[in-house]
Design a protein around this nucleic acid. Sequence first.
DNA 1: CCCAAAATCAACCATATGGTTGACCTTCCC
DNA 2: GGGAAGGTCAACCATATGGTTGATTTTGGG
Lengths: 109, 109
Amino acid sequence: MSNPIDLVFAALADPTRREILTMLLEDDMAVTDVAEPFEMSLAAISKHLHILTRAGLIAQEKHGRVKWCKLQMDAMKDTSIWMESFGQFETVNLDAFERFLEDQTIQIK
Amino acid sequence: MSNPIDLVFAALADPTRREILTMLLEDDMAVTDVAEPFEMSLAAISKHLHILTRAGLIAQEKHGRVKWCKLQMDAMKDTSIWMESFGQFETVNLDAFERFLEDQTIQIK
DNA sequence: CCCAAAATCAACCATATGGTTGACCTTCCC
DNA sequence: GGGAAGGTCAACCATATGGTTGATTTTGGG
């Protein structure tokens, strides 16, 4: 699984990670602060943050001994575009199908 | 992982499954026909279809010995909405931030 | 009736998640 | 300098993917 869009979808498939993203929507956060509301070890959160980083959904930057986590919306947008365009293709096809049906009706007339 | 949105994201994280969805955009297909373009066993495709079904992205219906696969766009839409609303919240926050900056400027004046 | 086609099931394998705990490295600060 | 805070790393465990092959089930058709 190396495709960037694969990594984004996989990263979004976990509720903990989606909640982390939602938290980061408010503001950048240090790793310890991200972990605070969750009932799991700091190491587990660190792994989640690594997966989010690998997917490009967040960026991490170290200042002193504190590592800051920051949302990167672009990765999400690419994926959102995939989904939207998917929906649009369906619409296009439905239109084509309706035109096809109309043509059929005309033929019958 | 039982949350429906978890299952949708996880299902979309595999390129084979996304390609299957794209194929189904054109028309409903039998399992064997779905498998035909891929260089993997029918059993593997059957598993992928099961994961897509579990996520609600497709529905399968058996007619005789042929099982037809049909896109179910609603599941994808729910997930798309999650992503869009996520982006919107960011926009809202940016607006708030800009207003904040303007207020600051006014104060300085 | 009997064979072939359509699919799934079962068992197996390698790898990735998702979590734990304990050791470790950096950096701040007294 | 040394202890504590901020994080990661490593090893471990259970479970899920993503694939394989071989057997099995169901159904259509000559």
